[in-house]
């Protein structure tokens, strides 16, 4: 049961190719474009994210409004562009937090392999067995839906899953001589975990980070779609899709534009993660359940 979440690591018969694959580079390029848009979008987006009546409501695509306008006449293109920043920030913050906390817990448990590990992993198993979305809805209903609470919730839900992967990876390196040597030098547990083990599983953790990012984008989007994400008028893509849905039969642009933006970013991250995992000889490391 434990192994599945790590995607059943197997020894590959193929040799790891040197350098990132072509599709990996495509993924990296896509991510780069999004990061640039997020950083510079505010400077060149034609309208503000909350500027109403930039045209009449529900206009189709035109030169003025490349993706049309929404129910309040806001420019969909500008909102998608400006939404990039909040989406990327939320995603990276949530994932970084999850990988940092989950990763540390996983490494420590994997290194200790004593009763702490035993009990800790049981708790993690239990947390994982509760469906993510259900737990997220419960937590967000309880504590409210500000931007940062959504980030914390997503981090909390992802951390146990990351911990499992980190622990599994730690188990493969913990028996190495350099760990024993460090122990002999009298280094503390934390220092061994951070200085000896972490550098040797960096690749796995990077791939994990990339995959979790992709999940986080879809997950945050789903929360926004169910009305549990960031509050309006935040130009969050899931929320935009939800708001535009009632009129989808009449004008599909306000749905399609944020959906495409989301999908392309997720594709980019997936391609990059794939390339990365091939690079470090861990093909096909995947877990579907966080989706």
């Amino acid at each position: 049961m434990q192994q599945q979440d790590a995607g059943a690591p197997r020894a590959s018969l193929r040799l790891a190719r040197p350098g990132l694959s072509a599709s990996g580079w495509v993924g990296a390029a896509i991510i780069l474009v999004y990061v640039v848009v997020a950083l510079t979008g505010a400077a060149w987006a034609p309208y503000g994210a909350t500027a109403i009546l930039t045209g009449s409501p529900f206009e189709g695509a035109s030169l003025q409004h490349p993706f049309g306008t929404d129910n309040l006449g806001r420019d969909v293109f500008s909102r998608v562009v400006l939404g990039t920043r909040s989406v990327l920030t939320m995603t990276f913050a949530a994932t970084l937090l999850a990988v940092a906390v989950g990763g540390l817990i996983g490494i420590v448990f994997g290194y200790l392999r004593n009763w702490v590990d035993e009990i800790g992993m049981r708790i993690i198993d239990i947390l994982i067995s509760i469906p993510t979305l259900v737990l997220a809805l419960l937590i967000i209903s309880a504590v409210g839906n500000s931007l940062w609470l959504v980030v914390l919730t997503v981090a909390f839900l992802f951390a146990p899953r990351v911990a499992r992967v980190a622990r599994a990876a730690t188990l493969t390196v913990v028996t190495n001589d350099y760990v024993a040597a460090a122990l002999a030098r009298g280094e503390s547990t934390l220092s061994i975990c951070l200085r000896e083990i972490l550098p040797n599983i960096t690749g796995v953790m990077l791939v994990e980070f990339a995959i979790r990012c992709a999940f986080a984008i879809i997950f945050i989007g789903s929360l926004g779609f169910l009305g549990f994400g960031a509050p309006p008028p935040t130009p969050e893509w899931g929320l935009m899709i939800n708001e535009a849905r009632a009129n989808a039969t009449n004008s599909l642009w306000p749905v399609l534009a944020p959906a495409t933006a989301m999908a392309v970013l997720v594709i980019g991250i997936n391609l990059f993660a794939d390339g990365l995992s091939r690079l470090i000889d861990r093909p096909g490391q995947r877990s579907a359940e966080a989706k």
Binding site: G238, I241, A248, M262, A263, V264, V266, I267, N270
Partner: peptide, 18 residues
């Protein structure tokens, strides 16, 4: 397959309905 994997299911649903 990659596209389907990266589209959230609510988007797939809305598109199918449309």
């Amino acid at each position: 397959v990659l596209i389907f994997m990266c589209l959230p299911e609510f988007v797939i649903g809305i598109l199918l309905i449309s």
